[in-house]
Design a protein around this nucleic acid. Structure first.
Length: 683
RNA sequence: GCCGGCAUAGCUCAGUGGCAGAGCAACUGCCUUGUAAGCAGUAGGUCCUCGGUUCAAAUCCGAGUGCCGGCUCCA
């Protein structure tokens, strides 16, 4: 007998040669069914691996996040098997699990057919067939000399059977690397398929029934553009059909909510070939944009920020001083002056400039100039200088994406200047500030990451230690969970990033807080302290929305463009039953407009049903229908987008009653009194 | 920047070498409309741009531009 210990500290006696399956079965049959792999002495291993006396064993089940990665890695093997059957010329390279699934990179020698999405159906069919056959995943370790290892030799034979050179050079490169590092080679086999692999895997292919191929893209061998071009086939896998279906539903839902499509349908913004990557905001998009700005401004005012405006174009010399020229050149736009030739007015020549200018990619240098414009005292600290700063950044072609990645965007940027011992309080203030803002949009799922000193960095150890400690103290002091990204900070200081999860479970990086000891130094910033001495202030860069454009894209998708009343570009649409009631409709419209609502009176010659449909497609929160009854009674008939009961029809009321009801939801974060009332009734 | 795909009416798309098309939207008229699409008619085109092949190009070929999916995750 051997004894192994479990995470709860208990010890189990098992017969000699027992493995993870036996352990799980010894505990309970349901655990045996749910177990995917074992973690033996902190290392992941197949359940089939024999246990030794004294091992610390943790059984990892379907519910553990690690299990999903194992499942998907196994699914990558299954997919590779299926693809090789259908595309015998393909050569395998690597196939890891990723965030939402897995991929396998394949090399298709010249002249051979490549995988396209049209092939997904038959590949999936093949995978289903292999899954049903329930082949065990069997591990083989190469213990002795690889040259004499039977499995390894057979693998080489199989792997190279159709490759022109006889062998798959990608796998060969991997094998060479593993041997060079002195690590052991290991292989996994299911059915006839063998692949070089570290493991572990699910027990058998029967686990891999809920698999779906998603897309295909290009990639390079080892992410090196000078190396071979590979075809990357992506898929995803789940333990249950329900989870897979839910995942596919979310992908479909995300497609439907694509802000680029909704932005066009709702006439919010557009893009044009004449300015690639630069959004044009239309009337309605501008309303949303301005509401976001107004809301942010109200908070900045409340919290004593000084809002400023800086020029768009500044001397190139300034960008040398700030370090952007050295570190950010590729992302900057530069101006080029031209002149008409005096001799020949048709001829245009470039002007050679003694002081060339550049378009700002960041707002900080402007704020630094404002700071240094006069002597500063610690008494005005913390000094918070904010700007709705429009910045321009060149992006490589191919990375632009709707409002999410543009070449000109507006940051709700601010720089806090303070003393070192004010850092902690400022950070805590900002964390509360950011969370307050996100909560207004229903974005309560906020993940915080702390990035620490990178290898390449400036500043003394003491300063860095103190800065990181201040960030940690601030986070710990608020009892906030956070992930640490070691060495991922900016070269001038550590930072805290805010990642927000939307209703479709997608994560977006929005806010950022960065400590900076470098820029104030470079610009010679000083303040006079209580002791009368001059010191260099600490600078904190921060942006809460991040980019207004990007944030707008996020909330369009988060709300599926069903904006809450305060953000809705069109808040009320008035539908007269026929042209006999146009005057009354105009009168009601004027009253609501006088109260500050954004109202559209629909005077087109169309049926009521048609106009209601139009308002619904445009996602207008409230529709008012007026006809003979309402005109005689001096009332309106209300229909609400967000009320499900009775098709959203709420009924007759006066304008005054309506205004009183919607007052709350006209403020950021406010909720509909109609929806709330219903919730109370139901609850 | 790199790989792959796409570009036809305002929008969504059909047309694959031989007359430029549909639905929706727009406009006009009729209907006097009561809670998600009334009826009829009219108009709308540099088939992305440039070059090539061909008797003939929206269609085939090349280049450019823009858009879309990826290009960080190293068995």
């Amino acid at each position: 007998m051997i004894s192994v210990s479990l995470p709860d500290g208990s010890v189990r006696e098992l017969p000699e040669g027992s493995n993870g399956f036996d352990l799980a079965g010894d505990i309970s049959p349901s655990l045996k069914k749910a177990s995917v792999i074992a973690e033996i002495n902190g290392r992941q291993a197949d359940l089939s691996r024999p246990l030794q006396g004294g091992d610390q064993v943790r059984l990892i089940t379907k519910r553990d996040p690690e299990a999903l990665e194992v499942l998907r890695h196994s699914a990558a093997h299954l997919m590779a098997d299926a693809i090789l059957r259908l595309f015998p010329k393909a050569q395998l390279t690597i196939g890891p699990p990723v965030e939402d699934g897995f991929y396998y990179d394949l090399y298709f020698p010249e002249g051979s057919d490549s995988v396209t999405p049209d092939d997904f159906g038959r590949i999936e069919q093949e995978m289903q067939r292999i899954a049903k056959e329930k082949h065990r995943f069997q591990r083989h370790d190469v213990d002795g000399e690889p040259a004499t290892d039977e499995v390894f030799q057979r693998y080489r034979a199989i792997d190279g059977k159709d490759a022109s050179g006889g062998l798959n050079k990608f796998k060969q490169e991997l094998v060479d690397g593993i041997l060079e590092r002195g690590e052991g080679l290991s292989f996994y086999r299911h059915g006839d398929f063998v692949d070089l692999c570290r493991g572990p895997h699910v027990p058998d292919t029967g686990w891999l029934k809920n698999v779906k191929l998603t897309h295909v893209s290009g990639a390079y061998w080892r992410a090196d553009a000078s190396r071979e071009q590979l075809v990357r086939v992506y898929g995803t896998a789940f333990f249950s059909k329900e989870e897979l279906d839910e995942h596919l539903r979310l992908i479909e839902e995300a497609k439907k909510r694509d802000h680029r499509v909704l932005g066009e349908q709702l006439d919010l913004f557009s893009f044009h070939d004449e300015a690639p990557g630069f959004p044009f905001f239309h009337r309605k998009g501008t309303i949303v944009f301005n509401e976001l700005v107004d809301f942010m401004r109200s908070l900045l005012r409340r919290d004593g920020y000084e809002e400023v405006r800086c020029p768009q174009i500044l001397s190139e010399e300034l960008w040398h001083r700030s370090g952007h020229y050295d570190n950010y050149l590729e992302n900057m736009f530069f101006t080029k002056l031209k002149l008409r030739s005096e001799k020949n007015p048709d001829e245009v020549v470039d002007v050679s400039e003694e002081r060339p200018m550049a378009v700002k990619p960041m707002n900080c240098p402007g704020h630094l100039l404002i700071y240094s414009e006069r002597p500063r005292s610690h008494n005005e600290f913390p000094l918070r200088i904010g700007e709705m700063g429009l910045v321009h950044r060149r992006e490589m072609s191919g990375v632009r994406h709707g409002l999410f990645r543009v070449q000109a965007f507006t940051q709700d940027d601010a720089h806090h200047f303070c003393t070192p011992d004010q850092i902690e309080a400022e950070i805590q203030f900002l964390i509360d500030f950011f969370k307050e803002v996100y909560a207004v949009f229903g974005l309560d799922d906020v993940r915080i990451e702390l990035s620490t000193r990178p290898e390449k960095s400036i500043g003394s150890d003491e300063v860095w230690e103190e800065a990181e400690a201040a960030l940690r103290r601030a986070l710990d002091g608020k009892g906030i969970d956070y992930v640490v990204n070691e060495g991922d900070g900016a070269f001038y200081g550590p930072k805290i990033d805010f990642h927000i999860r939307d209703v479709l479970k997608r994560s977006w990086q929005c806010g950022t807080i960065q400590l900076d000891f470098s820029m104030p130094e470079r610009f010679g910033l000083k303040y006079v302290a209580a002791d009368g001495e001059r010191y260099t202030p600490v600078m904190i860069h921060r942006a809460c929305y991040g980019s207004l454009e990007r944030f707008m894209g996020i909330i369009i998708e988060n709300y599926a463009a069903r904006f809450p009343l305060w953000l809705a570009p069109e808040q009320v649409q008035i539908v007269p039953v026929s042209d006999r009631f146009f005057d009354y409709a105009r009168k009601v419209g004027a009253e609501l407009r006088a109260a500050g609502l954004r109202v559209h009176v629909d005077l087109r010659d169309d049926r009521v049903g048609y106009k209601i449909r139009q308002a619904s497609l445009q996602k207008v929160p409230y529709v008012i229908v007026v006809g003979e009854k309402e005109q005689d009674a001096g009332t309106i008939n209300l229909r609400a987008r967000d009320v499900e009961a009775n098709n959203g029809e709420i009924g007759e009321m006066t304008v005054a009653e309506l205004l009183a009801k919607v007052e709350g939801e006209r403020r950021p974060g406010g909720v509909s009194a109609f929806v709330e009332a219903r919730a109370v009734e139901v609850g």
